[in-house]
């Protein structure tokens, strides 16, 4: 015990300086050269910062492409999923209510066509993306509210779609915030 205690304490002090002071400061220094300077990349519109590109936002207005449901209502001071288990009756009631709400706001959409992501919550509660299908199914509603031709909206979604990384990794996605910023710029 005694033979080990002094080296253990000295080791701890030395390693704290190495792993918890020097190493993070070096990384923080390098991060200043990265996009966003290590503070997170922001998106600007209407002459102000409207959010972070990576952090999803709540879009419930019919004028915008709506984002996925979130267990934390997109409050990015925290993060959480719903965590209710796959067959919890309360959970299934909540999904049913979301389906009903979606059908009221999108009367032209058939129930069997609603992509599951639009009525299920993400893991972080801050999911910034939708699949292209989930964006396109909202086009009819937005076209009506904004009096825009549906073709232009389809083009807009396509232009904002990111394909899989190197064509191999992951699904195609649309960043909802960037899509809605672009939507506001349509004349």
């Amino acid at each position: 015990m005694k033979t080990n205690l002094i080296p253990a304490i000295r080791l701890t002090v030395v390693m704290l300086i190495l792993t918890s002071v020097i190493y993070p400061l070096v990384v923080a220094g390098i991060a200043k050269l990265a996009p966003g300077g290590g503070k997170g990349v922001t998106v600007e519109a209407k002459g102000r910062v409207v959010g972070y590109a990576l952090i999803g936002q709540k879009f419930t207005d019919d004028r915008y492409f709506n984002s996925r449901p979130s267990a934390v209502e997109y409050n990015a001071a925290g993060s959480a999923g719903s965590n209710k288990g796959p067959s919890n009756p309360d959970y299934l009631k909540m999904v049913q209510a979301r389906i009903d709400t979606f059908l009221v706001h999108n009367p032209t959409v058939k129930k069997a066509d609603i992509p599951a992501e639009l009525v299920t919550a993400s893991g972080s509660g801050l999911d910034p993306d939708l699949s292209p299908a989930a964006a396109k199914i909202q086009i009819a509603r937005i076209a009506k509210v904004r009096s825009l031709p549906t073709e232009r909206l389809t083009q807009l979604v396509d232009a904002n779609t990111n394909g899989p990384l190197l064509g191999l990794f992951g699904p195609s996605t649309v960043n909802v915030l960037k899509l809605n910023v672009a939507l506001d710029q349509l004349r």
Binding site: G81, S82, D113, A116, S122
Partner: peptide, 17 residues
């Protein structure tokens, strides 16, 4: 519940993955 689950079970998952 009768909706489209062709992209798998998405509750608790992120769209970018």
């Amino acid at each position: 519940l009768g909706i489209d689950q062709s992209a798998g079970s998405l509750e608790g998952k992120e769209m970018r993955f």
